[in-house]
Design a protein around this nucleic acid. Structure first.
Length: 415
RNA sequence: GGAGGGAUGGCAGAGCGGUCAAAUGCACCAGACUGUAAAUUUGGCGUCUUCGGACUACGGAGGUUCAAAUCCUCCUCCCUCCA
């Protein structure tokens, strides 16, 4: 391995499959290249599941190459069927457009430098070329390069068929579209490389093949191992929803906490992948055992938060976490709600307060939490379901700290 | 077009006239133990409640019955086999 980029990919655990590792290595050594990764435009923000791709592009740019973020504005109208059991809802143009703007501003901009320079990142939307395609023309020019026999052989499709879960023609076309994207990017920008998660392998390879057949160009595919938690779930999803990169959808503190609470066995992998710490430092942290792993997790959480939300947000999150968990105190980053002072003076049933703060979804749940000993007020367990908070509960610093379990805390202040 | 089978809580999957807010497993939440981890273990897991209950729920709409997730009719959707 000679190229800086592939060296980094290797030591940081980003390489799963490559269509031609040596060829790609040689190409990268020749001079600056461009590579792209496709991203979904179905939500207002990307999430931790997209972070692998973003980090690949980040390193690509750091190595002096040009990353291209391809937004699936056009393909979002179809929905990637890969490994999904059910057909997705389709989105309208305006929503997709809105999503793309948001994602660029709040997700990519933290990791990539956009601009017009040779190594500046480029943002493209495949709707630009997919939207105007003529069906007959497209079938005639490109459809002939795809055999259904081969399309059926892809795992993504096979699993769907084996489960006897209906796969519409619309969705089946997704891989054709994605293959065409690659060709189009090659034509427009000379892009030779497409990267992605290992689940995208089939889609990417389709593009490589199409490049061969349609334009006689040699394209390259590079995929990263899909990260799963030890119990086999995809990274970046929790029961409360996705771990969003956009601070407006998930606070930096919660983002920090997400990383702080990852499974022990994941720490090394995650440090490699989602921080930019030097490898020797990562190796030192990986060697920690037992309770010391917490130190590695703190660094992981801090570094990951710093990359995504900036250093000051990371410091704030870290401070708050330290105060809350190590000193049993409070920090500025804890979620805070304001309550009318006169209302509080009159007394507010704790049950209502728990619902208002979001610590419980309903009064019934709040009641059960109290009965189960899960609720604390200013760090003291509350056992009385009928308890009502008054301004007498305010601490000297003017807040009430409510906790559900050990990790969920909310501050209440008066206004 | 014809013949069957099916639709149950976040998912999987029992129930097939009252004892069903619905077994069981997974997921989730909380307690214990810990290291803000994992594993283990205990409790919880529709909404409201003056804690007696009340209300809404088993694809949708009607009906039979004192009583329906369970029986009947129609509708919608899915699957299998035949053409």
């Amino acid at each position: 391995m000679k190229s800086d980029f592939l060296k980094i990919m290797h030591e940081r655990g980003f390489v799963h499959q490559c269509s031609d590792l040596e060829g790609l290595d040689a190409k990268l050594c020749e001079g600056p290249q461009s590579a792209y990764i496709g991203f979904d435009a179905t939500a207002q923000s990307l999430h931790v599941g997209n972070l692998t791709g973003i980090m690949m592009l980040y390193w690509f740019q750091q190595c002096g190459h040009k990353p291209i973020t391809l937004m699936g504005g056009g393909t979002s109208k179809i929905g990637d069927p890969s490994f999904k059991d059910e057909q997705r809802k389709l989105l309208d143009d305006a929503t997709i457009e809105e999503n793309i703007k948001n994602i660029e501003k709040t997700c990519f901009a933290q990791f990539l430098t956009y601009g017009d320079g040779p190594a500046d990142a480029l943002m493209v939307n495949n709707n630009d070329w997919l939207d105007g395609l003529k069906y007959l023309e497209f079938l005639r020019d490109y459809g002939r390069f795809f055999t259904v026999n081969r399309m059926l052989s892809f795992d993504s499709v096979k699993t769907r068929l084996e489960r006897e879960s209906p796969l519409s023609l619309l969705e089946f076309n997704y891989m054709v579209m994605q293959g065409y994207d690659f060709l189009e990017l090659n034509r427009r920008y000379g892009t030779l490389i497409q990267m992605g998660g290992s689940d995208q392998w089939g889609n990417i390879i389709n593009g490589v093949d199409l490049g061969h057949k349609a334009d006689q160009v040699q394209l390259y595919a590079l995929t990263a191992p899909l990260l799963t938690t030890p119990d086999g779930k995809k990274m970046g999803k929790t029961e409360n929803g996705a771990v969003w990169l956009n601070a407006a959808m998930l606070s930096p503190y919660d983002y920090y906490q997400y990383w702080r609470n990852v499974d022990d066995v994941m720490v090394g992998t995650l440090l490699r992948r989602f921080t930019i710490l030097p490898i020797d430092e990562v190796e030192k942290l990986e060697a920690l055992e037992g309770a010391e792993i917490n130190e590695a997790k703190k660094i992981l959480a801090f570094e990951a938060t710093k990359l995504c939300h900036g250093e000051s947000a990371a410091i704030d999150a870290q401070d708050t976490a330290q105060k809350v968990f190590e000193q049993g105190s409070i920090g500025d980053d804890l979620p805070t709600i304001e309550i009318d002072g006169t209302r509080l003076a009159a007394g507010i049933p704790l049950l209502d307060l728990l619902v208002e703060t979001g610590l419980a979804a309903s009064k019934g749940e709040a009641r059960r939490l109290i009965q189960g000993g899960g609720i604390k007020r200013n760090d003291e367990a509350v056992n009385d379901v009928g308890y009502a908070s008054t301004d007498g509960d305010l601490t000297g610093d003017g807040y009430i700290k409510l906790s559900a379990g050990k990790k969920r805390h909310v501050l209440i202040r008066t206004k």
